[in-house]
Design a protein around this nucleic acid. Structure first.
Lengths: 340, 340
DNA sequence: GTGAAAGCGCTAACAG
DNA sequence: CTGTTAGCGCTTTCAC
């Protein structure tokens, strides 16, 4: 039954439009008798309220946006994004919100998308996965007064709500573990230095070296995008420096790096040990399996949604920053299982 | 400048609301003079039209929905979905449509989502990736009169627009290639038999056997989900039957199967040759590289959007079915490179 | 507990 | 070319 309006329902049920509205929205102050009658009509006609009309009148769209920024190739090959999206979508569904997805891969995308997300009467709130420096989109969006939660630590945090893991301490713990295993020459393949994830994980690595009185050796540190290919190339640069162990800023990077190591005729973990970051399901299990830091990506997405909804409903006065727990998981690639 | 309405803009520019509206919507019949004046005001105030109000008045939301059905684990590990989504998102962006994403993984999801997508005044059209038999959602959605394009061949096609590749002939060609390479015992790891992809690719395999007067051997045929893990297990069942070559219904399946083969101490392609399906970027390159059928997943998404928009704009009278080209790509895993 | 009435902000005839 | 006038379908005071 298309095109039916609330007015029609009201007429059929012999009540006023306001009463019908009350029933639809589960308001109190409707007699059981009337409520039943109206509900019956709604059932029979499979009436659906008009979303735009409702939004216009109530100033709530029950829709939130998710912006996934410029990450061309990583978007397809790193399980992080699909997993995060799943967590977000699932939470939205549970909370009866609709999710609008904005994939920004080019500068033009960015420009077309901004007015759309800023438009009022469309989104109740916005989620942005980023930690990119100089992210125009974020700057713009924070200025508009739409409730906003950033996934990942934003570069400037003041007044901005965000949700992240403690990248620094998680990495610190992981690298400490490598130290405790007796490795002296511990290198890192860091993430992009224009991202907060990249910066924070590098910071954790450096802090561990310092805590353990290990020298900082520039030849043991290379930067990489979060892709297998890039990890591979980064490792090739690192091999001449003869690292005994590597902390890779993501599992995908570790995968590429291990490929480079194997190609060079070296063994993991005997010649080079590895620790990664993420522990999200990969299409194929790495060999040897990765010692890594698990971050709760799926739940991160869910929590981001919940936080955003709280902001939407209770006002955006106090910015929230939420740090979720990681878990260090020891498997084969770090060599611990053998040495013990 | 929040909360500004078209009325305010009109007032500031000294024109009527209708004229202001004409300028906003780039209608003709506005003098350059007036147009400029209004545009200036819009600029200065960074006015954004209220999306819901516009939708209500024009009966167009400029939003389309994408439903990705129940595919729990494959969603994270098979690059197909992220890639498809990218193609769709990019096309939406280009066409100035907004994309709403519905990830359906449980039955409850399904029930919560249906009323939302069916609600009028919210979506102008709907994209559903499916080819699942007994898909309640599709059944329901086809009954609502919202413009709809299915990605993948639906089980019942009459009156339904869809876009797909020619799975049967693509597979036929691939298996013929294996035959031409001299393999006699060619097995297949088929996709789920409750999906049209699974069915069609199996059909292509069988047709090739028939065309080449090869016997159909049940012990050489196993069914599998589109995951690495399942491909691995499927292959384990197949190994005792001593296949010389395998057509795997997807690259991910082939990956798992090759792992099983290697674990059994056999060599690819010398002991068992492989052909896969998809050729989408994987996090890590398979070894040996896969001979496979490339389907244009990204463009498939784009084309689906274009088709849907056409349906939205020109009416949904004639259902369209679009078949996109695949490309057979020979690499190492089938053994061709060696034998030549 | 129920109804009347006033919008929400915009588009789109229609008249001039 | 521009303004006037009706709505789009719903929510929400405010009376009763």
């Amino acid at each position: 039954m298309p095109g039916l309006t609330l007015e029609d329902i009201a007429k059929k049920a012999g009540v006023s439009r306001s009463t019908a509205s009350r029933v639809v929205n589960n308001h109190p102050n409707v007699s059981d008798d009337v409520r039943h009658r109206v509900q019956q009509v709604i059932q029979e006609t499979s009436y659906q309220p008009h979303a735009a009309a409702r939004t216009l009148a109530s100033q709530r769209s029950w829709t939130i946006g998710l912006i996934l920024p410029r990450t061309v190739s990583a978007l397809f090959t790193d399980p992080y994004y699909p997993r995060l999206t799943q967590g977000i979508a699932s939470a939205c569904n549970q909370k009866n919100y609709t999710l609008s997805l904005f994939l920004v891969s080019t500068r033009e995308d960015e420009e077309k998308i901004f007015p759309r997300v800023a438009r009022k009467g469309f989104l109740d709130g916005l989620l942005v996965q980023s930690g990119q420096i100089g992210d125009h989109l974020i700057d713009g969006v924070t200025k508009s007064d739409i409730p906003l939660v950033i996934i990942g630590r934003p570069f400037h945090t003041k007044g901005i709500s965000y949700i992240d893991v403690d990248n620094i301490n998680a990495t610190l713990e992981a690298v400490n573990h490598l130290v405790s295993l007796g490795y002296q020459r511990i290198g890192t393949i860091a993430g992009p230095s224009n991202s907060t994830v990249g910066i924070d994980r590098l910071k954790g690595y450096l802090r561990s070296l310092k805590d353990n009185d290990l020298p900082v050796d520039e030849t043991l540190m290379v930067e990489s995008e979060f892709t297998e290919q890039d990890g591979y190339q980064a490792m090739q640069k690192l091999i001449p420096a003869k690292p005994q162990a590597i902390f890779a800023a993501s599992d995908i990077i570790a995968l590429g790096a291990m490929r480079a190591v194997k190609e060079a005729g070296l063994k993991v973990p005997d010649d080079v040990a590895f620790v990664g970051f993420d522990d999200q399901p990969l299409p194929t299990k790495p060999d040897p399996e990765l010692t890594t830091i698990r971050q709760p990506v799926y739940r991160l997405g869910g929590r981001a949604v919940e936080t955003l909804i709280e902001l939407i409903e209770n006002g955006t006065d106090a910015a929230r920053s939420i740090i979720m727990e990681t878990q260090f998981i020891v498997r084969q690639s770090c060599g611990a299982k053998k040495k013990r």
